[in-house]
């Protein structure tokens, strides 16, 4: 079943006070996310990621096109009960405690009183805020707020979870925890749609990614496919501060840093390169085939010229 579907969804803002000029925030977007998928929405800052999320949440009205979540119009109340949303850099009511906040959101989601207190305690434990449950939110750190934000997004057991830049502003530990949480949601069969500009997170978590730039979808692809294609190159790393003379003859790209040296050569030259190292009595540390990274794909898409809009899948 399709979890999220956008059909020619577009948004143009009128900017300016007197003479309003149109500013295109999102060119017609066609996108489909299957149920159970973890979908990464990639793009530089200001690419239109947040606009897309706001359109999907019904916070802004589209200039054209429609969107469906779980096969239903996004403005229907039933749909809203099935989704969870974490905005970018969330902030919550200063004078409420974490527990009160979750209580409030549980009420708004229409959860039964009995279910509420049980789930809230469990959720606080899950995001590691059990001890801070009775602390007012104004005393929370940024990372703690992000965790409260995640907690409210998944508290009511939604089928589809939207996360806007869930890792931003977190320390390495916090990022690790968020990653684990998204993994966990995936295991539970939830659909997770998250925007990010941190590619390593997307590479580690996503089934598929979309790249958006300047309000335009530049490409959609399966992460496994994008990164499995071998580029026909290998990377050698060895101990040593200099690159032997023979490497240049092989057409290698060489780098040195301190006690390590690194060279990338075509895979047909692999044996020749190893021979040189052996001859020079340099100790090989690793030999790995070079796979095209998500980064390359991303850079290629972002830097590509503007193409006609509406490229899907």
């Amino acid at each position: 079943m399709i979890a999220i579907e956008t059909i020619h969804l577009e948004k143009t803002y009128a900017v300016g006070f007197w003479r309003k000029k149109p500013r295109v925030a999102l060119r017609p977007l066609n996108l489909t996310v299957e149920e159970g998928e973890v979908f990464g929405f990639l793009g530089p800052n200001g690419a239109g990621k947040t606009t897309t999320l706001k359109l999907l949440m019904g916070l802004v009205s589209p200039t054209g096109g429609t969107a469906r979540i779980l096969g239903k119009n996004i403005y229907e109340a039933e749909v809203k009960a099935q989704i969870g949303f974490l905005p970018e850099q969330p902030y919550f009511y200063d004078y409420l405690t974490a527990k009160e906040l979750l209580e409030y959101y549980a009420q708004l989601s229409g959860m039964q009183p009995k279910e509420r207190s049980q789930k809230i305690d469990a959720m606080l434990e899950r995001v590691g805020l059990k001890d801070a449950a009775r602390l007012q939110l104004r005393k929370f750190s940024k990372g703690m707020l992000q965790r409260v934000g995640l907690a409210q997004a998944i508290l009511h057991d939604p089928k589809v979870v939207f996360l806007d830049e869930p890792m931003s502003g977190l320390d390495p530990m916090g990022r690790r925890e968020v990653r684990d949480l998204i993994e966990e949601l995936k295991q539970q069969g939830k659909t997770v749609f998250f925007s990010t500009h941190i590619l390593s997170d997307a590479e580690a978590l996503c089934d598929r990614v979309a790249v958006i730039h300047q309000g335009e979808l530049r490409g959609v692809g399966r992460v496994a496919e994008l990164t499995s294609s071998v580029a026909g190159k290998v990377e050698l790393i060895w101990n040593g501060s200099a690159v032997p003379a023979g490497f240049s003859a092989l057409g290698a790209e060489c780098y040195t840093s301190g006690e390590r040296a690194r060279a990338v050569v075509a895979d047909v030259q692999q044996e020749a390169a190893l021979e040189i190292l052996r001859r020079e009595r340099l100790r090989l540390i690793s030999l790995t085939p070079v796979r095209s990274s998500l980064e390359e794909y991303y850079l290629q898409k972002v830097n590509s010229a503007v193409k006609p809009a509406g490229v899907a899948q």
């Binding site: 949440m57 039933e78 809203k80 905005p87 969330p90 902030y91 959101y105």
Partner: peptide
């Protein structure tokens, strides 16, 4: 400003 409204309106709240 603080976007709490976003989380409220993404729920079944009119």
């Amino acid at each position: 400003e603080k976007r709490t409204l976003y989380t409220v309106l993404s729920r079944p709240v009119r």
